[in-house]
């Protein structure tokens, strides 16, 4: 099937958007995996979600329908909920141990 949108994405600059999305997504993922502070890791997750938002908004514009934009608004809401719970847990951990560095929390493995 020849999809006109595919040609558009590959042909006229859409590929750059996808590249930026993937770059942001990878940066966020690396932050989650390699930073050793819980707050930074949480920010990494947010960065990944925002990368996805960018991608949804771009595709939404490409297809001239609003599904993608609605979904990206929903992602904002859900990300806020996730951060609320995450910050609560981090505050709890900080009160308990006095640090939010991941190294302290490697008690259980195996």
């Amino acid at each position: 099937m020849n999809n006109p949108f595919t040609d558009f994405i590959i042909g006229s600059g859409g590929i750059y958007t996808i590249a930026v999305v993937l770059l942001l997504f990878t940066l966020g993922g690396m932050t989650v995996l390699f930073r050793r502070t819980l707050l930074h890791m949480l920010m990494g997750v947010e960065l990944m979600l925002n990368a996805v938002n960018l991608s949804f908004i771009y595709f939404s514009r490409l297809h001239q329908n609003h599904d993608g934009q609605i979904l990206s608004l929903m992602i904002f809401v859900v990300a806020a909920c996730e951060v609320a719970v995450g910050i609560a847990i981090i505050v709890h951990l900080f009160k308990r141990t006095g640090t939010i560095s991941v190294e302290t929390y490697t008690a259980e493995r195996g």
């Binding site: 999809n3 999305v21 996805v52 991608s55 599904d67 993608g68 979904l71």
Partner: peptide
Amino acid sequence: LGISFIYGMTG
């Protein structure tokens, strides 16, 4: 990310 790619291709 997966959903966004699928959405991008199918609309």
